[in-house]
Simulated assay, not measured.
Amino acid sequence: MLDFVALDVETANARRGSICAIGLVVVENGSIAQRYSWLCRPPESIGHFDGFNVGLHGIRPEMVAGEPRFSERLDHALAIIGDRPVIMHNAGFDTCALRQACDAEGTSWPTLRYGCTLVWARRELDLVSYRLPFVAEALGVPLESHHDAAEDAEACARIFLAMADKRGSATVEEFGTTVGARLGELRSDSWRGCVSGSSQGLVAPIVVTDAAVDHPLHGQVIVFTGALSRRRQDAWDAVARLGATPEPGVTKRTTRLVIGGGFTGDSQDEFMTGKAAKALKLRQKGQPIEVLTEFEFEWLLRMAS
């Protein structure tokens, strides 16, 4: 049975935790049942409003002045979500925003199972861009006011319903299994993305030793952790073509660690996976491991195109 809740957040500034709006859309048995749109006061320590963000969503400081704080809105949202899976478009951003907002207000992270229509659309569709408006248009989903939290949440819900219908999936879990991307999990002290990070079943590719030696990844030993937008095997194959060696775990050989799952590289507080923690310890001992975000990794791949 297709029961889930679609979620979207908007932020007051470039700090992901500065949540000022939450949109929820409840889907029951494959049909939209309820829709919620809430403003909230972002965490005080990171709650200033930037003109760029205001220009996107139109939410101004005076509009949230009398609203409940983020933590109160989150409690209400979690009561509605219950034990249903949550669907987001670019879940790496939204789950990171939830974590950072909770940290800023000194509250525990929520417990959620979640999927990402951005990740899934990249596996199911062939588009020039996988931003929400492009995916919505490709699937015939209306999106009248992008960056309105409830509008975006409803578009996300309809996008997933369209993809699940094409696959004939009866549940969110079944769809994730079918496309090879398990649901992610957010817990009070840890998280993992909705793309499997397991190295089981990966095939070590042949490293192209005569690849361009001037490419920044040539000769590196690369490990991946967290959710990536591309399949892990595809990432391994891509770096091998550039003359790099992919490996499943961080060791004394590792020279590059690519962290997915919405990692931005802004703070070591975001190094939440076991591989990332091990890399930090090795760096403290003098091993020259460089950490890359998924965006930086993809940019390096495009250099070779």
Rank of each mutant, 00 (worst) to 15 (best):
47 G>L: 02
63 M>W: 06
37 S>C: 13
79 A>L: 12
35 R>T: 07
71 S>W: 09
59 I>M: 11
62 E>T: 00
31 S>C: 09
31 S>K: 11
56 L>V: 02
57 H>E: 09
32 I>A: 00
60 R>A: 10
80 I>N: 13
39 L>M: 14
57 H>P: 09
61 P>T: 00
33 A>W: 09
77 A>Y: 08
51 G>M: 09
62 E>W: 05
46 I>H: 03
54 V>N: 03
33 A>G: 04
57 H>T: 03
72 E>V: 12
80 I>Y: 11
41 R>C: 11
62 E>D: 15
52 F>I: 11
76 H>E: 15
61 P>C: 01
47 G>W: 02
80 I>F: 12
28 E>W: 09
52 F>N: 14
42 P>W: 05
70 F>Y: 13
64 V>P: 08
69 R>F: 12
54 V>F: 06
25 V>L: 05
40 C>Y: 07
29 N>A: 13
66 G>Q: 03
26 V>A: 06
34 Q>Y: 08
44 E>Y: 07
60 R>Q: 11
47 G>F: 01
69 R>H: 14
62 E>L: 06
75 D>H: 10
28 E>Q: 13
39 L>D: 05
69 R>Q: 13
37 S>F: 13
32 I>W: 06
58 G>A: 10
77 A>F: 05
34 Q>T: 03
57 H>A: 02
79 A>P: 10
57 H>G: 05
77 A>K: 00
75 D>Y: 08
34 Q>P: 10
53 N>T: 00
38 W>P: 08
34 Q>M: 10
70 F>Q: 04
35 R>M: 11
45 S>R: 10
80 I>D: 06
66 G>A: 06
31 S>G: 10
45 S>Y: 02
28 E>M: 07
48 H>C: 04
55 G>D: 07
39 L>F: 15
29 N>C: 07
